[in-house]
Computed example of a mutant assay.
Amino acid sequence: MRIAMVVALTEARPTRQQPAYALSVFVASVTAAPRSLEKRAAPQGIDVSGFQPTVNWNTVKANGVSFAFIKATEGTTFISSSFSSQYVGATNAGFIRGAYHFAHPDSSSGAAQANFFLAHGGGWSADGITLPGALDIEYNPNGAECYGLSAAAMVAWIHDFSNTYHAATSRFPIIYTTTDWWTTCTGNNAGFGSQNPLWIARYASSIGAVPAGWSFATFWQYADSGPNPGDQDIFNGDAAGLQRMATG
């Protein structure tokens, strides 16, 4: 994604009870890099978009990466032209994979954007290889940081998206954000940690504080570049836990 990246609207990304498949809190220090974690606990992942139109998934798999998030949609007008080939490629290479949606809370309702996402690759099935869809909610790449919404209006928008997605799939979407944005734009609302897995972005050697309501992050995006294409991610658990998450 994504953090603090200002680009055209069509490619913006800078930036449940708690799921039993995720371990408590990430160890406070996971040093810059993945190589020491390959094929062990804390499975490695990547997330990609149209900025990485061609990914050699077999090579990425051989590097020890086991899951991927792939950009599908943005707002209610943009569908990534790379999504289909990336998703099929990841599937054929044996990845656990899922789609993500970049939110524009100023352009339409949460329900409208959830339905657009669902209609263009963001669905979920209990097949053991599909992660619940992710809502990428973060810094506005083209205007006011919080999209001109009050904290209360932002919280209502996220609930609208989340509840619509849950009604269609039986799964609550993963929420991708930063602690700074969440604190600023939702008032550090604590109302999502009991249902939505957290995917936190922080490019540092430790994950730092997580937003209110969550006691840990399920996914950590720890770098925007590395030995594999796209952003670099870690799952907070083991390979069996990751597959349980995909199975539901």
Rank of each mutant, 00 (worst) to 15 (best):
I129L: 11
A168E: 08
T183P: 04
M245T: 00
S66E: 11
V210C: 12
S215Y: 08
F117K: 15
W199F: 06
F51H: 15
A151F: 02
A239Y: 07
G98M: 11
V88N: 10
I3Y: 06
D180A: 15
A12Q: 05
V210K: 13
T186D: 11
R202F: 04
N115M: 09
G50T: 10
G226S: 03
P211A: 11
G94P: 07
A72F: 09
I46W: 01
S225T: 13
M245P: 05
P53K: 12
A240L: 09
G94T: 06
D127K: 04
F102G: 13
D160H: 06
P19V: 09
T15R: 14
S225Y: 01
N188T: 06
Q86G: 08
V65Y: 15
R244T: 11
G128K: 08
T179K: 14
G75W: 05
A114C: 06
N115I: 06
D47Y: 02
S205G: 08
V155A: 05
W157S: 08
V30G: 03
L37R: 14
M154Y: 02
S80A: 14
A32S: 13
G208C: 09
I200V: 12
A119F: 06
T77V: 10
V55A: 13
A111L: 01
V27I: 09
S108L: 01
Y21N: 06
A103D: 08
Q113I: 07
W124D: 02
P43I: 04
T54P: 00
D47N: 04
T54N: 14
I158F: 08
G208L: 08
W182E: 01
F235E: 02
A93M: 08
S206F: 00
L198G: 13
R13F: 09
T164Y: 03
H159R: 15
A190H: 07
T218L: 03
S170M: 13
A41E: 14
G148L: 05
A114E: 02
L118W: 05
P132H: 08
A32W: 10
T15Q: 14
S150G: 05
P132Y: 09
F161A: 00
P229E: 00
D233Y: 03
A112R: 05
G75C: 07
G122D: 00
G148T: 07
F117R: 15
P19C: 03
G128Q: 13
N189P: 04
Q232S: 12
I174T: 04
A99M: 07
P141C: 01
P229F: 02
D106P: 01
Q18V: 11
F95T: 02
W182F: 14
G191T: 07
A217F: 00
H166K: 15
Y165E: 08
T184I: 04
E38Q: 15
S85P: 03
Q221I: 09
G208H: 10
A144K: 09
S108P: 03
N188C: 10
Q18I: 10
A240V: 11
F219D: 02
